[in-house]
């Protein structure tokens, strides 16, 4: 229990409670189920790509190309639809395309051993450029209502994307907590060479994670296109930074080896609620931009204070 109180999760929960309390005092309407349901509908694409980002950061990697992959997958879906192909088939192709894009990232990183920051920085520009090129930067819209229900439809009052998110979160949690693959991830992130010498197929793990990340970006693209009713090359702009922020805010170490699904989920909720509240109360959309940075700083400060007070007390009690 004591250990939990000092953990990042506890800090995030503390901040979240403080925020909601403040919101409830200042804008009671914000803290209602109806408002929260409405506001949450724009969160899910970020939420589902944050999970593979966590796994990649845990092996000491990074993927800056996720926003661009979302754009390219979305444009693929749009262009197929424009040629008269059912958007549902287009969606499957888009997810497959995402997997392929992720795999090409993985190939450079795992087989050619190029630093992931450089590889995905390059593919971030390349994928976005291809998306703009093949779509001529036009918006492609007019999808049938049946397709739009993919992101707007609900089952027992819960929107479909939530189920997608839940599925991804639970699998990630299971893999990290129970599966051998999860132990491999931690081992690679902690000390890659040790992991390699102890027989862990490092390259294969990397390939799998980057490919998976691409495919999940494909899923996010499908949901985004279905929700916006438009595929366009500027889809998912800046998504990578938001995802990385959520992961780091959730307590994952950017050097790898450490991270929790629960932390990322809490980080996501905290980012989302803070942003929504700030633009709700101050009614200035551009404030959204500074919230991400401010949140990260406040979280680190709170954590620092908590751990410092402990360090400060220790000698006096000893």
């Amino acid at each position: 229990m004591k250990a939990f109180l000092r953990s990042r999760e506890a800090v995030l929960i503390l901040l979240l409670i403080a925020l909601l309390l403040m919101a409830w005092l200042m804008e009671p309407r914000f803290v209602t189920i109806r408002s929260q349901m409405l506001l949450a509908s724009h969160l899910w694409e970020l939420a589902i790509v944050a999970i593979p980002m966590l796994l990649i950061i845990m092996i000491g990697g990074i993927d800056l190309s996720i926003g661009a992959m979302v754009a390219l997958c979305g444009v693929v879906l749009g262009l197929l639809f424009e040629r008269g192909i059912s958007p549902f088939i287009g969606a499957l192709v888009a997810i497959a395309a995402g997997g392929f894009l992720g795999m090409s990232n993985g190939w450079f990183i795992a087989k050619l051993r190029v630093h992931p920051l450089i590889v995905t920085l390059a593919t971030m520009a390349a994928f976005r450029g291809i998306a703009e090129g093949i779509s001529l930067a036009r918006p492609i819209s007019g999808y049938p209502d049946t397709f739009q229900t993919l992101s707007q439809g609900k089952m027992v009052g819960i929107p479909y994307p939530v189920f997608v998110f839940a599925l991804i979160v639970l699998s990630a949690w299971f893999v990290l907590a129970k599966a051998r693959f999860g132990r491999w991830i931690v081992a690679i992130g902690t000390e890659e060479n040790v992991a390699r010498f102890s027989g862990i197929p490092v390259a294969r793990v990397k390939m799998i994670l980057y490919t998976l990340c691409g495919a999940i970006c494909g899923i996010a693209a499908v949901l985004l296109v279905a929700r916006n009713n438009t595929a366009k090359a500027d889809l998912g702009m800046g998504l990578e930074l938001e995802a990385i922020t959520a992961v780091v805010l959730g307590g994952a170490s950017i050097d790898g080896g450490k991270g929790k699904v629960l932390g990322v989920a809490l980080g996501l909720i905290l980012i989302h609620e803070t942003r929504q509240f700030v633009s709700w109360h101050w009614k200035q959309n551009e404030l959204n931009l500074i919230v991400l940075g401010a949140l990260l700083i406040v979280t680190l400060l709170v954590e620092r204070v908590l751990s410092q007070t402990r360090a400060f007390k220790m000698p006096t009690t000893a």
């Binding site: 914000f30 506001l39 916006n228 633009s279």
Partner: peptide
């Protein structure tokens, strides 16, 4: 939206609905 991004604008409309 300062970016002119219509998806961002849709988000804002949803917030106004909630408000």
């Amino acid at each position: 939206p300062t970016s002119g991004d219509p998806a961002e604008a849709a988000k804002m409309i949803d917030q106004w609905i909630a408000q």
